[in-house]
Design a protein around this nucleic acid. Structure first.
Length: 262
DNA sequence: ATGGTCGTGCTACGA
């Protein structure tokens, strides 16, 4: 059984219903994981997605903020959620495929502007969220699992447009990278995108504030696809649909894809 | 060049 999976921070699924439908029609991933839906679950426009073949949805939502959804052409079962850092935010949901593979869809807090937990409570919450993800991986010992989402950290030097310029910018500070690495090690997660495409820039996010996002290309790789070692070698054909960042009224994130032959 | 742009839902806040 082979399936293609995509992850995309959509920044309002209701405003960008048409862009989700375009991705479904043109790229047709079997499973599409969305973050920042910014919608209660019952107001996600599911009927249009179902008309495009996405019959199954597992989601968590809240009004105005956060929200994660897994839309699928293949049957999926709800496999629960976690409230890392106990903020009451809809930032994680899991679904299980009929072959036993579990998909975790995550939206890690952005963390505010100042990379210091004493001056910025949001930065502390981001680190705490990652620490609780790490502890959960330690106890859960995931297998046959995929973890995707907007992890809001660009871990490697070549995951940002300038390592030096961003060392003190939230999303690329060493303490964040250390916390993300601890999650990876606790779950033995493999960075599928980097296993597939080892070198060079693979940005998935460009700020709305920067003019000429494409020409300047001051991007970051914030969106990730990980898998446990037992299934990671089945992954291939990783790519980022950069063109979606240039669609009309776009999200500031581009979708990331991988295909698994299982 | 320490600005800049979005979305939500009410004029502030989070990203």
């Amino acid at each position: 059984m082979a399936f293609t999976l995509a992850t995309w921070n959509i920044n309002s699924v209701r405003l960008r219903e048409g862009l989700v439908a375009r991705l479904m029609a043109e790229e047709a991933p079997d499973i599409l994981c969305l973050q920042e839906c910014k919608s209660p679950v019952d107001k996600i426009p599911l009927e249009q997605f179902q008309a495009l073949g996405y019959r199954y949805m597992v989601a968590r939502g809240q009004k105005g903020y956060n929200g994660v959804a897994i839309l699928s052409k293949l049957p999926i079962m709800d496999a629960g959620d976690r409230d890392f850092a106990s903020m009451g935010h809809a930032r994680h949901v899991a679904a299980r495929l009929e072959n036993g593979v579990t998909i975790h869809n995550c939206y890690v807090p952005a963390g505010g502007d100042i990379p210091d937990r004493d001056q910025n409570e949001k930065f502390g919450q981001k680190l705490d969220f990652l620490t609780e993800m790490r502890d959960w991986c330690r106890w859960e010992k995931p297998d046959r699992a995929i973890l995707v989402g907007d992890l809001n950290i660009a871990p490697r030097e070549d995951d940002v447009w300038s390592h030096k310029a961003l060392l003190k910018i939230v999303s690329h500070t060493p303490i964040e990278v250390d916390h993300l690495t601890a999650v990876m090690e606790a779950g033995s997660w493999v960075d599928v995108t980097r296993a597939d495409i080892p070198e060079g820039p693979l940005y998935s996010w460009w700020s709305y504030r920067a003019a000429e996002w494409g020409a300047a290309d001051k991007g970051r790789r914030l969106d990730h696809i990980w898998a446990t070692p037992d299934i990671a070698s089945a992954a291939h054909s990783s790519r980022i649909l950069r063109a979606a960042r240039g669609w009309q009224q776009p999200s500031d994130h581009a979708p990331v894809f991988a295909t698994f032959d299982l």
